[in-house]
Amino acid sequence: MKGRIRVLAPFALDLVLPIVAYWLLHTVAGLSPFWALGIGGLATMVNAIITTVRRGKLDGFGILVVVEVALSVVLLFVSDDPRVLLLKPAFYVGVAGVYALGSLFVGRPLVFEAGKPFATRGDPRTVEAYDRSWAVSEPFRAAIRAVTLVWGVGFLLDAVLRVIIVYSFPPAEITDSLLLSQVPLIAVLVAMIAYTRLRMRKVRPIMLAERDRLPAERH
């Protein structure tokens, strides 16, 4: 359960922090929508940077954080349209989608590593069985690839819908745009998590069977 919370927490914070920060800075403090969104977005960046530092390495996620920071700084100086700042989440969600789809063709799919803590719960014997399942079982590999495909497409869908929603409102209605632009990610996450649980439940017996085949001395 703790592992799931750690994985899902960044998504929850990315949903909640911009809205809360915008409300405090715009409604309470009286800042303009543009600056309320810009400064509020820094909270999300700080959270992402802290996560990267805790991981102790500049991996794909860390590179995405660096790009996001650079993009935010540029946006603050090149545009005064608050809707542009609302597109920032669409950018890194879109990149995550492309990365997930790209991992289907290079190396192991994204969900293989991301799903390992959920499937194995950190047990060394189960981790070995999980890795062996990928090596010997085509149904296991097919499930991992299918879930990765769904997450990649889901992220790209959220990015596209976010852009459509943001630019369907004029700048004067930025509050409504901010709230509604979060809806696709919520809906997509619910659908992706439900599909993942359903699909992975069917291949869990494969992993458990591989664990039972491991030599007894590895207990």
Rank of each mutant, 00 (worst) to 15 (best):
F91R: 09
S133Q: 08
V66W: 06
L101M: 05
L110P: 01
S79M: 08
G152V: 02
P170S: 14
D80F: 12
P109L: 15
R121L: 12
P109N: 13
T126A: 15
V78W: 13
P89N: 04
G97R: 07
E68I: 15
S72G: 11
L85N: 10
F118L: 13
D81K: 11
V65F: 05
A143L: 07
L85E: 04
P117G: 08
A90W: 02
V74H: 03
F169S: 04
V160D: 00
V127E: 07
L156A: 04
I63T: 15
P171Y: 03
I165C: 06
V67L: 15
K88D: 00
R162T: 11
L85A: 12
V127Y: 00
F118K: 09
L157C: 11
R145M: 05
G115Q: 05
E113F: 13
L87E: 01
A159C: 02
A100Q: 08
G94W: 07
G152R: 02
F118W: 12
A143Q: 05
L86F: 04
V67M: 13
P124Y: 13
P170V: 11
F118C: 11
T120N: 12
P124Q: 11
E68C: 15
A159F: 02
V153G: 00
R83P: 02
S168G: 12
V111H: 05
A172Q: 11
S137G: 03
L157P: 00
F169G: 03
F118G: 07
V147Y: 00
A172W: 00
R108E: 09
L101D: 00
A100M: 05
E128D: 07
D131A: 15
K88S: 03
F105V: 15
V153K: 03
D80C: 09
S137E: 00
T120C: 15
V153C: 04
F77M: 06
L87R: 03
V69C: 14
K88H: 02
V147S: 02
R108W: 06
D131T: 14
I165E: 02
T148Y: 02
G94D: 01
S79N: 12
G107E: 03
W151S: 09
L87A: 15
F169K: 01
T148A: 05
L64N: 12
P124I: 14
E113V: 13
L76P: 00
V106N: 10
I63G: 10
F112L: 15
A114S: 04
D81H: 11
L110G: 05
F91N: 04
V73F: 10
F118A: 14
V166C: 11
S79A: 14
L85I: 14
V136F: 12
A143S: 13
V166Y: 05
K116I: 11
G122N: 07
P171R: 07
G107Q: 06
S137M: 02
L156R: 08
W134S: 11
L110D: 01
I164W: 06
R121C: 06
V65W: 03
D131W: 09
V150I: 15
V74L: 15
V106Y: 06
G152L: 00
Y99D: 06
E113C: 06
L86M: 14
V66A: 06
L101N: 02
D158R: 09
V111Q: 08
L161S: 09
R132G: 07
F77N: 10
V111K: 08
G122C: 08
I63W: 09
S72E: 01
K116G: 08
V160G: 08
Y92W: 10
L101W: 03
R108I: 05
A159M: 01
